[in-house]
Amino acid sequence: MSENTDAGKIDLNELKSGGFIKQNQKDLFTVRLRVPGGRLDIDKMIKIGEVAKKYSRMGYCHLSFRQSVEIIGVHIDDFNTLVKELAEFGQSIASCGPRVRVPTACGGCEYNPNGIMDAQKKALEVDKEHFGTPCHHKFKISFSGCPIDCARTQGMDLGFQGIVDPHWEEDPCTGCTLCEKACLEGAIVAAEDGKPIFYREKCVYCGDCIKACPTDAWTAKRKGWAVRAGGKHGRHPRTADEIMLFLPDDKVSDFIGKTLAWYNKNGKRGERIGTTFDRVGLEGYKEKVARPFITD
């Protein structure tokens, strides 16, 4: 990092924990904004544009893979005024280093018919409660509304994906076979009379059968989150381990808190949580953290 005579003006803690990333160009930095779930209110977006226009010495922004707006080419001398101007309309900076990052989320169910759980709402909530929490390495969280998993929960330190448990009642069923057609997983096979035989082990809890059934013979018994942990991208990607099914919506924040406490206790500096699992085993984590949240 370049030494600067004005460094006294810059909050160095903010530099280290905040989203300021050194560029190839001397004294220029990328400033990464905090945009949980990638949703930007339009007025804010315009104001960000105005600030970016004023301070980017390279004339562009970049949309990061974790849904943030990055202002490219900000001079170190401009940090203070930039941060102040962003703060005036409530825009803060993302985090870097060994701590909880801004959660990402799919567009979600307000406008996407596939959504089961409200990923956007959770991302905002979790950002408020856990953003910036220090731990051994970066810690990435994402939310997908349904099993299509647009927010790639498999590649996160902790990923939450919406699921619904289908329940069938014989009475209303007319044997139309539409649920068999609707299920892409082969979890429903129509019997002689057209009525469904359900193979739970194949079910991914997408709820397509519920949406298809004309008589509401299939209904949602419960909704919740499938939880995965230990995923990462990077040079040595690791697919997340499946931790549990049907975590209730109101337990997500608690689950994250307990996971971070476990990670901080059992992990090592510089080690992602997936590496901790590989070193000390997953069972301890499941037992200690997930077990108390499992209801059946």
Partner: peptide, 23 residues
């Protein structure tokens, strides 16, 4: 046709509030 149309059309019909009474 069988396949995608049979997966999608009945579901969209339900979303619009109409009812598939027979297949």
């Amino acid at each position: 046709d069988d396949g995608e149309p049979m997966r999608s059309v009945p579901r969209s019909i339900k979303e619009e509030g109409h009812k598939v009474i027979k297949v």
